[in-house]
């Protein structure tokens, strides 16, 4: 599947309530599900939250994912 589809799938794993955005609290729910520490998850959140408003949108999330996939900050959208 495409990067956009994958990033939407992953977004939904994080956004369990289907709010349409991810908060730090949502991120910390992944503690125990993923082999990352609370500090790692904070770090991931800060890295993905490009505008620093405390909410991760699917756009921010997918741009982080495409950066991971391709090593560039080109938007997946």
């Amino acid at each position: 599947s495409t990067v956009l589809e994958k990033s939407q799938e992953f977004f939904q794993i994080c956004d369990t309530e289907g709010k349409g955005f991810i908060t730090r609290r949502d991120m910390q729910r992944l503690l125990g599900e993923l082999p990352l520490s609370a500090e790692d998850l904070e770090n991931v959140f800060d890295t993905l939250d490009a505008d620093g408003n405390g909410y991760l949108t699917v756009e921010e999330f997918s741009s982080g994912f495409s950066e991971f996939m391709f090593g560039t900050s080109a938007s997946a959208a």
Partner: peptide
């Protein structure tokens, strides 16, 4: 190895995060 650093860069932690999600998806049908 001079490229090995203690502690993870934000890039490294992001890669770790997405890799874990990929693994998680692969592991759950």
């Amino acid at each position: 190895d001079p490229n090995m650093k203690g502690g993870q860069t934000s890039e490294g932690v992001l890669a770790n995060f997405f890799n874990s999600l990929l693994t998680k998806k692969a592991g759950s049908p």
